[in-house]
Amino acid sequence: MNDVIIRTEGLQKHYVLGAETVRAVRGVDLTIHSGEFVAIMGPSGSGKSTFMNMIGCLDTPTAGKYWLDGQLVSTLSEDELARVRNQAIGFVFQTFNLLPRATALHNVELPLIYAGVGGKERRERATEKLRLVGLADRMDHKPPEMSGGQRQRVAVARALVNEPALLLADEPTGNLDSTTSEEIMVQLRALNEAGQTIVIVTHERDIAEVARRQVHLRDGLIERDFLNSTVETTV
């Protein structure tokens, strides 16, 4: 068995809204190994995004523990979390979250800037990842000049540029049409086959079936957790 990359123990997230407390995640125990491709599913409001944000170190749990690559991160300070996000995690968002005024190349370089990588190496590495997602000829374009699919591929390149241990994607195809969604999923699948650990959140069954394992959430708890049987067929 490969190394454990994610381990959560009774992970909880509560939001206090006035007198009311929303228990978005109510105690999730989950272990994910290196090299896995996991799809998190569940109805709207079941806590998928909340869980992903904690896994991605964007948010801190109200209670419970979270180890990333053997390190207990649920107690880290804000700056340490920023470092973990920079070094160990690549995050792909539903809404791309690219800087609209910067070129694709600069967008992909951003994580390397915060990692303190020098200009020349930075450009080389960003270019390589853009080539990997098939956008070598769009490097100097800005996001508004690109299609949704292209933007999401820039976002994938950006998420990969720091060679993260973990690639997270929260509904990466949520804003894309079915053909473009499929392109992205092929991409992710190829990455996983090359050894990249990936966790994605999705609503769509056929997207989830591209992954090897599905984790279903309901009301902030794991409802089902199983391996895809159809996983060997290519999409």
Partner: peptide, 16 residues
Amino acid sequence: TREIGVRKALGATRRT
């Protein structure tokens, strides 16, 4: 705000 969010998500610290 969004730009700041993106930068922080990608590893910018408070100080930067």
